[in-house]
Write a protein that binds this DNA or RNA. Structure first.
Lengths: 249, 249
DNA sequence: TCGAGTCATACTCACTCTGAGACGAACCGG
DNA sequence: CCGGTTCGTCTCAGAGTGAGTATGACTCGA
């Protein structure tokens, strides 16, 4: 029997019934604080609980499913306006039996980073979607609290060695804008002078536009220079976090 | 309707039919070269091709499924002998429609690191399993070449900032053993003196046993000291690879 | 219009980490 | 016993680091 004949007669039947979903950890910065996109669940199970946005995978790639769900929950369309500037990457897959009481559900979690997006309008699966500060999230449905924690860990780590921070700011930004991203995600303010020196010394992190902001900050100071994201994919040398003593355990 | 009533009447039916599998990128070092565990496929599709070991997920966690598949393909049992020293971590999930011609298959890939394991005996799903040097792998079935490439990238990167290298060596090892791991995975020999200094200066990377190897190497030299893996989970400072100019693109 | 406060940017300084090389002693095979 | 190899240590110059200071451009409110 050759491969053609085999495939024509193939009967996809005796594998366990499993549903595959995507869940999104969408992060943005509003008012200097890190926020995550949540939905309030309308139906069982966990009716009324907060949860990460997500849904079943259709006849599409996993990446496309994540982008579609993100678009549905925020009310924006892929490629429309600000949504095409979103950075999306696969985080991890969660598939413990029993994580969903209905049936076996394997969920591919995605991590999304975006400049401040408008307030979302409700999608079809959710009674409502909204941005919540990550330090005021509280309990979440399913194992979503663990997924969010993994997403935050990943985001904090990737700020160190990738130009990820540029995904949180407008296309033209100042060094201070970038510093505010690090402060919000890491929860501590980097030393302004050293941060400035390091960002400019890493090849390909930022490109100067030659322009200067039209106005200074609200509280004064000189008008800062404007930069665009460079073409680096990895920061070399990295911008390491101030000493964390969590290296051992 | 409360949640109990909802769940009792829940009918898992109208989600798309998807199969979930695990695929394993199992790496080890033999004769100073990095090897990956492969199987030769017995049945269609890709009959006769080489592939990564893997199989369907049963009523078990994804991690357990990966461990079970690894045990089946190597002929070792979990917890038996050397297999309990294997380091196993989730790599990434691959789910493009069409990656398997039979049906929609979402595959959760795992990365395994082990000290040199005995030659495997064939599992049930595979006509045979064997270790192949990673630089002589050639074409693989499905999208397994891409999975392997992602796994190698991850392994090379994790050597820098985690004590992963200790998973490739015996419980008691010399600094030179460790250096050989870095040389095999990175493809270049680190500077012996500097490597020695850095390994010993990173807190928690290795602990001295106080012992000395019974014999020196085949080609002479003093008898090296023996070490055990320390309790660090992250290396601080990291052992960075010699300059790679792939940071930009 | 003026003064106090804020901030971008540049610079200094002491310290640490790094790569490259050198060296002596221990140990191998022949 | 000898030549060659390796372990472990040391040195040195250069790069990167955190912490602090300095200057002048800008804000707001008096």
């Amino acid at each position: 029997m050759d491969e053609r004949t085999f495939l024509d007669g193939y009967e996809p039947a005796q594998f366990p019934a499993v549903a595959v979903t995507v869940d999104i950890v969408a992060l943005t910065i509003r008012d200097g604080r890190l926020h995550v996109l949540l939905v309030e669940r309308g139906g069982h199970p966990f009716a009324g609980w907060r949860a990460l946005p997500g849904g079943f995978v259709r006849d599409e790639t996993l990446d496309d499913a994540a982008l579609r769900e993100l678009a549905e929950e925020t009310g924006l369309r892929p490629g429309e306006g600000r949504l095409d500037r979103v950075h999306l990457e696969q985080l991890r897959t969660y598939g413990d039996p029993g994580r969903d009481p209905r049936m076996r559900v394997v969920s591919v979690a995605y991590l999304a980073f975006a400049p401040s997006l408008p307030d979302p309008r409700a999608g079809s699966d959710a009674a409502g979607a909204f941005w919540a500060p990550v330090d005021e999230v509280g309990e979440l449905a399913f194992d979503h609290a663990a997924i969010l924690a993994d997403g935050l860990d990943r985001a904090r780590a990737k700020l160190e060695y990738t130009p990820l921070a540029t995904a949180f700011v407008e296309p033209e930004f100042t060094i201070a804008d970038l510093r505010a991203v690090y402060a919000a995600v890491w929860g501590e303010e980097p030393h302004a002078g050293n941060f400035h020196r390091k960002v400019l010394s890493v090849p390909g992190f930022v490109d100067s536009t030659g322009e200067t902001a039209a106005r200074a900050g609200e509280r004064g100071g000189p008008r800062p220079r404007l930069y665009r994201a460079g073409d680096a994919r990895l920061l070399h040398p990295a911008l390491l976090r101030p000493d964390r003593e969590d290296s051992v355990r």
